[in-house]
Nucleic acid binder design. Structure first.
Length: 192
DNA sequence: CGGCCGATCCACT
DNA sequence: GTGGATCGGCCGA
């Protein structure tokens, strides 16, 4: 179960990577509790030319600075005052690309996940949604900037290979403010 | 410093 | 289908 290499995240085609991350497994290890799930939904955010991206127009703030780092870090931010949304930073240093992970299918540490949300996981719906998957995995916006090569949050390739027939492509969710860029086919969903 | 708002979720009708 | 929760980030003054 090899961890994805640093070079993997340095690849420059963020849309390709968003699709490629489907079927890989996202793990966290916090408080000696290992939890993980297969990535089943992603969205690509294509940097300074993408009106949906926090880095649109080359905007640099303390928060978005993480996206300008070299690929292989977590970009996690607070949304609606209560949800931590987890993104994978990609591309070389200076190019602020990121991939939002929107859903997982739990495979490891399910009891711990249930403890974190204080209810049982009855269907995959419980871990579908960017706010929900961060909660079950214990990811918090204070984790923004940590390396995916470390031992807190990482992604493994478990050699699950998907056919194109198992992948649905669509526009991204919740970004109407991005006008014409809201129509870009940058969202990928795996049907497992 | 004040005010607006969001890459969401859930309870309710 | 709809609205409320809830607060850090961002912008303009």
């Amino acid at each position: 179960m090899p961890k994805l290499s640093k070079d993997y995240y340095l690849q420059t085609d963020v849309v390709y990577l968003a699709k490629d991350l489907l079927g890989k497994t996202l793990f966290t290890l916090f408080d000696s509790q290992l939890t993980g799930g297969i990535i089943t939904e992603t969205e690509a955010y294509a940097g300074i030319t993408d009106k949906a991206s926090h880095a649109y127009g080359n905007r640099r703030t303390k928060r978005t600075e993480i996206m300008y780092h070299a690929g292989g870090e977590a970009y996690v931010y607070l949304c609606y005052g209560m949800y931590s949304l987890f993104n994978v930073v990609t591309n070389i240093e200076g190019v602020p690309h990121a991939i939002l992970i929107r859903a997982i299918k739990p495979v490891e540490g399910i009891a711990e996940m249930e403890r974190r949300i204080n209810k049982t996981i009855k269907s995959d719906k419980t871990t579908q949604g960017p706010g929900k998957l961060s909660r079950v995995l214990g990811i918090h916006y204070s984790h923004s900037g940590i390396s995916l090569a470390g031992n807190s949050i990482w992604i493994e390739d478990n050699n699950l290979r998907l056919n194109d027939s198992q992948i649905i492509t669509s526009p991204r969710i919740g970004i109407d403010y991005a006008k014409e860029d809201a129509l870009l086919p940058y969202r990928f969903v795996a049907t497992l």
